[in-house]
Write a protein that binds this DNA or RNA. Structure first.
Length: 473
DNA sequence: GCATGATCATGC
DNA sequence: GCATGATCATGC
């Protein structure tokens, strides 16, 4: 029985749309594929375990291929719907505090370090596999009962032209890094939409690389979680008005990288004071908001809110940094609080802190105070954390914090003040733990049932200073 | 002046 | 009410 025309994307999508609302066990049941003696469809006995085992991650995709679209599972590099070049991706969503977001990056294909150095993007497997994707989103409810997970949305994604141009540059950057013998230094934060994510049975799956004897972690091209979240919330479900783009004319991306364009937009304003900038931008406030410098940056970039489409897709955060009259930074840089009860159950690579610095890129914008006591725009730069810092000092701090929570806090009284034994600012001058709360009664529970003031990880101001002075490597 | 603890301001 | 970015306050 032919249920769709496999030479026609519209027909495939129309048929696929009927998946919405079904659980995976319903898909099997309605497939009429393997019937038991009662005439019900069941999982083929050879594969029942594979499809229901929590550990076999790709299996829900295979289940859809086999039971819904009725073709054999292929692991070759051809497109799933080979006649139209359409790729199928079955993508988990998660729900946290009533908010649904994409659970994982979407892996496209393994990076072959040996061939990428000679293979232009246009001829690569990756461009073929991400240009046209049938995205099947299901809600991963965390129960582990995979077959009960329910499909929420089906969407035919085709890569927008401006995204294609950015993804091509991402590919070129990854290829260039491999060509330079730096495959072992690849990081997801290097690129904007197309990331080089680790891929393997364990995180230490190593491969050889050309132009360097150092082994590199196996990695795959993937659409970043931030990119997928943008796709989901703005293209698939369209819940709210999308943020504005910074790049209004996408042909600019033919000449320059996104980062170059952004930095050039800011260069014109270097040396200008806060009040001059407010004037130039036509802004005035009765009472200046605390994030005035961030507002200024977004307005320079031509965006009316403190959100930009490209920053959302690429997981870029704007951080303003103030230099005092001695050219030092006054404050360390804070990041979100962590939960004591979560950190004790997490491994480093799945921790929030690892995910932040592994995936995020920062636009650091430096303001310097002048003799007139006014801040002036000094410079701006993009930065993401190098792998050896992430898996060195930052991991050390995280591990030390985890150990403190595991073993129980040790508090000491010094007169009116009480100190704890979390890794403090003097720990390694890169990353430390400090309170981050409304006040000291704003607490999270400890594993032992006691409560302690919310804490977060901070980057040391002396480390930030090295970064903005270009001396962090 | 730094280290560390404590808190503010804004937006959702 | 809370998450998040940012800054203040005190003791040594």
């Amino acid at each position: 029985m032919i249920r769709y025309d496999d030479t026609n994307d519209t027909s495939i999508l129309q048929y696929a749309k009927k998946l919405e609302g079904k659980s995976f066990s319903e898909v099997v049941k309605e497939s009429n594929k393997y019937l038991n003696e009662d005439g019900d469809s069941v999982l083929h006995e050879d594969k029942a375990e594979y499809y229901s085992d929590t550990k076999s991650k790709g299996s829900l995709g295979h289940l859809i291929e086999e039971y819904y679209f009725g073709y054999d599972i292929n692991s070759n590099q051809e497109a799933d719907f080979s006649k139209t070049g359409l790729e199928l991706k079955v993508i988990p969503l998660k729900e946290v505090r009533n908010k649904i977001s994409v659970k994982e990056r979407v892996v496209i294909t393994i990076i072959n370090y040996d061939t990428i150095i000679d293979e232009p993007f246009e001829n690569s497997h990756v461009v073929g596999k991400l240009s046209s994707i049938l995205m099947v989103f299901y809600l991963h409810d965390g129960s582990g009962e995979k077959l009960n997970y329910r499909i929420k949305n089906v969407y035919h994604y085709t890569v927008p032209y401006e995204d294609y141009l950015i993804i091509k540059r991402d590919y070129d950057l990854i290829a260039e890094k491999v060509r330079a013998g730096k495959a072992h230094e690849l990081s997801e934060g290097d690129t904007l939409f197309l990331g080089a994510c680790t891929k393997g049975a364990n995180k230490s799956a190593l491969r050889t690389q050309p132009n360097n004897d150092v082994l590199a972690m196996q990695r795959a091209f993937s659409l970043k979680i931030s990119y997928m979240n943008y796709v989901y919330s703005n293209y698939v479900t369209r819940k709210s008005a999308p943020p504005e783009k910074i790049i209004k004319d996408s042909t600019q991306l033919l000449e320059k990288s996104f980062e170059e364009i952004v930095l050039e937009m800011l260069v014109d304003y270097y040396g200008k004071s806060k009040s001059e900038l407010l004037d130039m931008l036509g802004l005035s406030y009765e009472k200046e908001p605390k994030n005035i410098l961030t507002i200024i940056i977004y307005r320079i970039l031509g965006v009316k809110t403190n959100l930009a489409e490209e920053f959302a897709k690429a997981n870029i955060d704007v951080k303003t940094i103030r230099l005092n009259d001695k050219n030092k930074i006054n404050e360390h840089m804070s990041f979100p609080t962590f939960k004591f009860t979560e950190i004790v159950n997490q491994d480093w690579t799945e921790s929030d802190l690892h995910n932040i610095f592994n995936e995020k890129k920062f636009l650091f914008v430096v303001f310097e105070i002048g003799s007139d006591n006014e801040y002036r725009l000094k410079k701006a730069l993009f930065w993401n954390m190098p792998m050896d810092t992430l898996n060195g000092p930052v991991q050390d701090t995280w591990q030390a914090a985890k150990t403190v929570v595991e073993n129980g806090l040790v508090l000491k009284n010094h007169g009116s003040r009480t100190t704890n034994n979390f890794p403090s600012a003097s720990y390694n001058r890169i990353c430390h733990v400090r309170p981050h709360a409304q006040n000291k009664d704003d607490v999270y529970p400890m594993p032992d049932g006691t409560f302690y003031t919310k804490q977060s990880f901070w980057l040391d101001k002396s480390y930030i200073l090295k970064i903005i002075n270009g001396c962090d490597k």
